[in-house]
Design a binder for these strands. Sequence first.
DNA 1: CACAAAGTTCGATAGTTATCGTACAAACAC
DNA 2: GTGTTTGTACGATAACTATCGAACTTTGTG
Lengths: 103, 103
Amino acid sequence: MELHHPERSEIELPAVLHALSDPHRLEIVRRLAENSEPRPCGSFGFDISKSTMTHHFRTLREAGVIRQERQGTSKLTELRRDDLDVMYPGLLDAVLSSKSVPA
Amino acid sequence: MELHHPERSEIELPAVLHALSDPHRLEIVRRLAENSEPRPCGSFGFDISKSTMTHHFRTLREAGVIRQERQGTSKLTELRRDDLDVMYPGLLDAVLSSKSVPA
DNA sequence: CACAAAGTTCGATAGTTATCGTACAAACAC
DNA sequence: GTGTTTGTACGATAACTATCGAACTTTGTG
């Protein structure tokens, strides 16, 4: 399947806010921000099923929050910090600077 | 009915992000920010029903984004900018500084 | 080739949400 | 009192969402 990523200019604020409003997805974004190396989806030790993880990653990707790329049998994920900082300056920093809550 | 407002320390980030992720509610918050006078709920010319407006204002209030107070037959609404700026510094500014989209 | 690893797709389900119309309540004006 | 204004409560409904398990695909490894 093709991975659809919105262009920078197509990243919509309500979609970004909605993507970040789920505790699991918020935690994913926090961890991606702490460790800026792209990392596979499976490297988050959440206690939820693989198909649910797929759903959350797709939500983040389609909102323009993350970028995903196939790499062998896994899929590397990184934060679209550059694009988000241009479109919505300060938003990601504000979200990330608040205390983390266990997912 | 009693109006429940969360304490400042009880304002949860996912709830705030969710409250702001709806285009109607985002527009309400933008207008409250532009004109800092408390204003009645009916003073937003949205083309949605009164009961839906009640729903959106309740969502914003229970998330801790707005404060509401009865004043005669109407109800005055104002942004909880002080509390939001303490709990999540920069968040509201980042959201408000992005271009407005018609609801 | 067979097998393992990492994700996706496909229902299914239970819960939430945005919307409406109608009926109701509270405060005010007359 | 009768209305008027402003908003709430109550169903109802259609759409969306978070979750799962089972089957599948793709890539790499032996």
